[in-house]
Amino acid sequence: MITVTDLSIQLNGQPILNGVTIEARPGEVTVLLGPNGSGKTTLLLCLSAQLRPQSGTIMLGGHQLEGLPRRRLAQLVATVPQEHHPVFPYTVRELILLGRVSRVGYWAQPGSRDQELVQDILELLGIKSLADKPYTRISGGERQLVLIARCLAQEPQVLLLDEPTSHLDFKNQVVILELVRDLARQRQFTVLLTLHDPNLALLFADRVVLLAGGQVVAQGTPGEVVQPAAMAQLYGMEVEMLSQGERRLLCPKLS
């Protein structure tokens, strides 16, 4: 459960987020939509305590974020970073094992229980064949899977993903988002992620939050929130909605 109340943050004197109040529930996928520069990434950085808001409170699974030690925080929240450039070619297994950093003692090495957990995760995500390959030598879609696997190794309650689909092909976008949704359902994770494509939000989101200029302009179910008028206003572009039965699809109006 994530509860953000009246969150405001300025960076270099520029207000980035202004009075943001959102809620994300366990077992659901909550999607942040908004144009570039609307503050989506900043909000995620606040939630993973990489940025410190000037005012407002953040509650994560019943704990107040402020003052939480990093180690405790990492046991609650796992993050898939937007960009990822490891300088050492660790194997996939070694990289996933790093999810255990917050669970293993400071001066200790991961034990057999940690290794077994990683093995289980590799099997769960169907990436056993990648286990001993260097992380730097696998494809973008595989990397995203490995990063999600590392999050699972943290055994968190909250999963944050910053544009998890941005470098992926058509199929892998769907693969990753289906996986994330299934994980939310099965393990009661609270999932919060940012997306650029409102159509993906229509397909996978349980809840949608619209951000514009650092403020929440709407939040609710995709059916309520992802409407042509709201999208047109959010992105400053004419759009129309195509429907076929239950399925709906946004399409830009071309001049």
């Binding site: 993973s48 030690p69 796992a78 490891p86 999810g99 400071y106």
Partner: peptide
């Protein structure tokens, strides 16, 4: 502490999210 060097070598931001001070 040698295993934690792996986490630190991921870079500052990522090491933080993994729980490293």
């Amino acid at each position: 502490g040698r295993w934690r060097l792996n986490a630190l070598s991921m870079g500052e931001a990522e090491a933080k999210t993994l729980g490293v001070e």
